[in-house]
């Protein structure tokens, strides 16, 4: 239960940061928090109490004694995607900063938002 609460709290904190914060970098941190929360939620769904990692680490381990491996594999993929998005976002922020000399989203308004 604690996993679910924590992950949903993380998602909400992240969304708050994206929607309310004016600093571009803080918005991206918020985005990463949302991602992190989602990953945690996914792992928590595949979790089985008192089960071990989904690897045949000792003889005679049955599938019922392991946690669900699929969420783990998927979260690994999702983490890589999140990393790529963050990298692109930071590259764009660097370029925005070069042009505007500010990270405040209110002062960067050449286009209609």
């Amino acid at each position: 239960m604690i996993y679910y609460i924590t992950s949903i709290a993380l998602i909400l904190i992240g969304m708050y940061a994206v929607l309310v914060k004016k600093n571009l970098v803080k918005m991206i941190i918020g985005l990463s928090l949302v991602d992190g929360g989602l990953h945690l939620l996914f792992i928590a769904i595949g979790y089985v109490d008192d089960a071990t990692a989904p690897i045949f680490s000792k003889e005679g381990l049955s599938a019922a004694e392991m946690v669900d491996p699929i969420p783990q594999a998927l979260v690994l993929t999702a983490i890589v995607i999140g990393l790529a998005v963050t990298a692109v976002a930071l590259a764009i922020i660097i370029r925005l900063y070069d042009h505007h000399k500010t990270l405040n989203v209110n002062k960067i308004r050449e286009l209609k938002w």
Binding site: L31, A89, I92, R95, D98, H100, I108
Partner: peptide, 28 residues
Amino acid sequence: RDHNGAEAAFKYLLIGSFASAFVLLAII
């Protein structure tokens, strides 16, 4: 390499990342 391009891209990225978060949540 003009600053409007970067601004449009940032806006797109922000909205797009929210979109993918929703899709991921739906899949979860």
